[in-house]
């Protein structure tokens, strides 16, 4: 078993125990995105594309500074721009880096049917293994953040890897490194939460943002990407950050109770017909000659 496999704590579509479960001591890594110091420069967008050698997309102007409406299979990191008027007539220009949130309880992984196409390492990174991806797109359905994107040519789904290649070699993710203002920060989840809470407190105490807070949604078990928001009561204003994300109930229903019910039903059906055969046997044609080719 490779060292890498030992570092896997969740595997999609996997039957039986996880080979490396509980086998490694490792801190959870986390990206902190402080939206209050994001200047929407898009350095992270390009750093991501450059590091991952992703092809550039042809875009068109759409009355916004935002590069494109949503992340794409070749564009894993998108700053969302939102003009937000305030009550006093002034305005805010909210910018938020949108990317895979690396949920502790990842909806994509829960939805994925392919063994090992999505794994979660012990450091919390949720990574897609495209050579095992079958292209069903269930992960797209499972994600509460609209992140994984399908490439129609390769028929595979792609998203932010949290630069697992860099992180595994002791480097920070490319976006984190690039961020000019330091609105992006990288470290252990504990440290980032601590930093985020301190910043939120500073915003409340010194900058008049009474509702400043940290976004680390419990509905998905917390995320490997956490935000500091000026107004944590209204994450939707930041380009549709869901207020209370969780794995869609449909996916949960589908993947757990319905699956077990279905399995039981199918098994029951097979057992039933078997028992029926054992008890009653085949119908033979009576009333005269019997079926010749029984």
């Amino acid at each position: 078993m490779s060292q890498a496999t030992l570092r896997v704590q969740k595997i999609s579509g996997h039957a039986g125990p996880i080979p490396g479960e509980g086998m490694q001591r490792e801190d959870q890594v986390c990206k902190l995105v402080d939206t209050t110091t994001c200047i929407g420069c898009k350095a992270c967008e390009i750093a991501c594309q450059e590091w991952n050698d992703l092809p550039f997309a042809q875009t068109t102007f759409d009355n916004t500074y935002q590069t494109m409406p949503t992340t794409q299979w070749n564009f894993w990191n998108l700053i969302k721009f939102n003009e937000q008027p305030k009550e006093d007539g002034t305005m805010m220009w909210l910018m938020r880096k949108d990317q895979c949130m690396h949920c502790a309880d990842p909806g994509c992984l829960a939805a994925c049917p392919s063994d090992g196409a999505i794994v979660q390492y012990t450091n919390g990174i949720v990574d897609f293994q495209q050579d095992r991806c079958i292209g069903c797109g269930y992960c797209i359905t499972g994600c509460p953040f609209n992140i994984p994107k399908f490439n129609p040519t390769t028929k595979k789904v792609y998203k932010c890897t949290l630069c697992s290649d860099r992180v595994s070699q002791g480097l920070e993710p490319a976006c984190i490194k690039a961020c000019p203002t330091g609105c992006l920060h990288f470290g252990t989840k504990d440290d980032m939460k601590d930093l985020a809470e301190k910043r939120a407190r500073q915003l409340r105490e010194h900058y008049g943002f009474e509702n400043a807070g940290v976004y680390d949604p419990p509905g998905v078990g917390g995320t490997g990407v956490i935000y500091v928001l000026h107004d944590a009561t209204n994450p939707e204003a930041y380009g549709g950050l869901p207020a209370n994300p969780s794995i869609p109930w449909a996916v949960r229903l589908w993947k757990t109770p319905l699956r077990w019910l279905g399995n039981l039903a199918m098994l029951g059906g097979l057992v039933g017909v078997t028992l029926h055969y054992l008890r009653f046997g085949p119908k033979t044609v009576h009333n005269g000659e019997s079926e010749k080719r029984s």
Binding site: I39, W93, G182, H206, Y207
Partner: peptide, 27 residues
């Protein structure tokens, strides 16, 4: 980034005067 550092570490204040609400104004 060093302007942001001043805000973050010293609670410094930033006034932006510009014909447009720029990305600097945003922070």
């Amino acid at each position: 980034k060093w302007a942001i550092e001043a805000k973050r570490n010293r609670n410094a204040k930033m006034i932006v005067v510009d014909p447009r609400f720029t990305r600097t104004a945003a922070v």
